[in-house]
């Protein structure tokens, strides 16, 4: 039950932070990505504030043996830089640079009723994830044969 409360509080903070930062506005995000236009450095402050806060907090959190409500920290292994990381990040960058939406702001679109971009973008985002799941499934099948 305490885990539920943590998820609610953390989710609320995350969504509130995105909206306060202006990250939910694709035009604001594109204003940062458009270095050849009237460049808006706001996202430097967003990412800077987030990384420094999380960095200081994590440093302190990881001195513990385990989280307060779990047996262990669930972290991805440091597997090294591979082709999937590079290709995936590049493809994500193309989609982000076109639309101004990364996954957090895309989910936050659900806060606004009647925006046609919500259905189009979120629907295709889910489709893209399913496609990636199928692709890795096929690759795993091919490895077995």
């Amino acid at each position: 039950m305490k885990r539920v409360l943590v998820l609610l509080v953390a989710g609320l903070m995350f969504g509130a932070g995105l909206a306060l930062a202006g990250m939910t506005l694709p035009q604001r995000v594109l204003g940062f990505l458009d270095v050849a236009g009237a460049w808006d450095p706001a996202l430097v402050f967003v990412l800077g504030g987030a990384v420094i806060t999380a960095g200081v907090g994590y440093y302190w959190v990881f001195r513990r043996d385990h989280p307060i409500l779990d047996q262990r920290f669930h972290l991805a292994g440091e597997g090294g830089v591979d082709a999937a990381l590079l290709a995936g990040s590049a493809l994500f960058g193309i989609g982000w640079g076109i639309s101004g939406y990364c996954p957090g702001p895309a989910v936050a679109l659900l806060a606004v009723p009647g925006n046609r971009e919500t259905v189009i973008f979120l629907g295709s985002l889910l489709g893209g994830m399913l496609l990636a799941g199928l692709a890795s499934h096929w690759r795993a099948m091919a490895d077995i044969d």
């Binding site: 305490k2 885990r3 943590v6 998820l7 509080v9 953390a10 989710g11 903070m13 995350f14 509130a16 932070g17 995105l18 909206a19 306060l20 930062a21 202006g22 990250m23 706001a42 996202l43 402050f45 967003v46 990412l47 800077g48 504030g49 987030a50 990384v51 420094i52 806060t53 999380a54 960095g55 907090g57 994590y58 959190v61 513990r64 385990h66 989280p67 307060i68 409500l69 779990d70 262990r72 920290f73 669930h74 972290l75 991805a76 990364c102 996954p103 957090g104 989910v107 994830m129």
Partner: peptide, 27 residues
């Protein structure tokens, strides 16, 4: 506001890691 929003996002990540041991990754 962008700075405050960023701090709030970072704090959310710390809360989720400290209590549930999870990464606050939306994707």
């Amino acid at each position: 506001p962008p700075l405050a929003g960023g701090v709030l996002i970072g704090a959310s990540a710390v809360v989720l890691m400290l209590f549930n041991g999870r990464v606050a990754g939306v994707s």
